[in-house]
Design a protein around this nucleic acid. Structure first.
Lengths: 247, 247
DNA sequence: GTAATTTTGTGATAAACTTCACTGTTTTTG
DNA sequence: CAAAAACAGTGAAGTTTATCACAAAATTAC
């Protein structure tokens, strides 16, 4: 029933015995936690190895706990009654998800469905354990508030874009946003996450055909390119310029 | 420059001298705070009396602090470059707003514009003071996390609706949502906040004309009514039923 | 490496929604 | 309470976007 139990739990190879704390340090909300507190939390953490396409949690399932991404990427989606989907957020290494279930009295369910976009490893922490931790370690609570502040901020901006912009502008803005978030030091602006046009369209909140048409234009102008499910932004300057001009 | 300073500060009549703590208790995040902690926070609180239509904060203004609503209602809006507006959230007595500026390193600006929908009184707390409080009082931090969890949850649902539903369904859902949130004990499902159709349309994320057409239908069917800027939901059952049928 | 499967591109058509224009109604203001 | 201002209703026209259909390309699986 619960996907978490269905997932293969694996001790991070030989590394686990060494120091799971070192991995937790890379999670944004744990970065400033004291050694001692971190060790106590590390004891409660479960490690999960998950393949691309696996649905980690489902939006109508009882919320058991919170996830941290050690590697890989995750899309958070919601559906309407007819099964249409929107990606409300994408998360990557260092991020937290399902945090909206903390202390929630509004609902005992997860707020969204989470699906792996790449193979990766997740840390899982039981809701009650994390809640206890937040009570006991103010540094942790502060980090969580900071993380949630940023999430709220990002989401209000997304809401504005989805509600007010036309397909062309939304697509360009999404490209810019993802290019800024999911690049690596070696690839300055590429979106280092495998995304089909279909999936990209559900981030934008439109159809694959509409996105395909916009992409065709941008490719012709030499602004973007696609190689093996990854979007390459060839000219970020010109891409940004598109948003400020009336096209 | 800063609206906060431009607002009339007024000592809540003769009441201030008595106990501002009693008023703070009605703010959701302070409800379980210890007497002592609450008293310390109360000392830092500024009280503001604000008229309907006043813009309390602006989305491109440096974030000075967080607001709590003692009475009245507030709309939080964002705009795109062309000046089109969307209401990302509506808040009422007991609620907090501008909380997304806490600890934020992403931006030093407020995340949205806040405008009074009714005359009311607000409490203002400097960002740094509240951050200090969150470090010192774990109960407060926990309440804040809970509040933010609920906000995140609500916002992801809003995003789904705005992105996936058609105007008719969005309008009906918005009616239902506001009816559940802004009623009073005496009026079971009415929206006890003065809203023009124009404003309602910016909550839904569409034009006033479109909402007007939907409202016309719903009035004709005896499901809703409007009296002096307030929406009356005559038949909540039938309204909800509309969302589950293919109309 | 080839077949099977999935994904994509694009024209044509249809539907939904916005915009415009204007009249009528309600609310506010002095 | 009357005049002014703001807001609302509605048809018609125009635009944008979704949907459909199908061929082509890319990716995955064996």
């Amino acid at each position: 029933m619960n996907p978490v139990h269905a997932l293969e739990e694996q001790p991070l190879g030989r590394v686990r015995a060494l120091k799971i704390e070192d991995f937790l340090r890379r999670i944004v909300i744990f970065k400033d936690l004291s050694e001692k507190s971190l060790r106590l939390i590390a004891n409660r953490i479960q490690t999960l190895t998950v393949k691309k396409g696996t649905q980690v949690i489902c939006e109508d399932e009882a919320a058991k706990g919170v996830f941290f991404i050690h590697s890989g990427a995750v899309k958070l989606t919601k559906q309407d009654e007819s099964g249409n989907e929107i990606i409300v957020c994408m998360k990557q290494k260092g991020d937290v998800f399902a945090e909206a279930c903390l202390f929630s009295k509004t609902s005992l369910m997860y707020p969204a469905t989470a699906t792996m976009l790449q193979d990766g490893q997740l840390f899982f922490l039981d809701k009650m354990e994390l809640e206890k931790g937040l009570h006991e370690y103010p540094e942790l609570a502060v980090q969580m508030i900071q993380y949630m502040s940023d999430s709220l901020r990002e989401m209000t901006s997304t809401l504005r874009d989805v509600a007010l912009l036309d397909v062309y502008a939304k697509t360009v803005k999404t490209l810019e946003r993802l290019g800024n978030k999911f690049n690596t030091s070696t690839s300055r602006w590429n979106i280092e996450i495998p995304l089909t046009i279909q999936e990209f369209a559900t981030v934008v909140g439109t159809t694959r055909e509409s996105v395909s048409r916009v992409f065709s234009k941008l490719k012709k102008e030499g602004i973007i390119d696609m190689k093996s499910r990854k979007i390459i932004i060839l000219d970020m300057c010109r891409l940004c310029a598109l948003m400020n001009t009336s096209y």
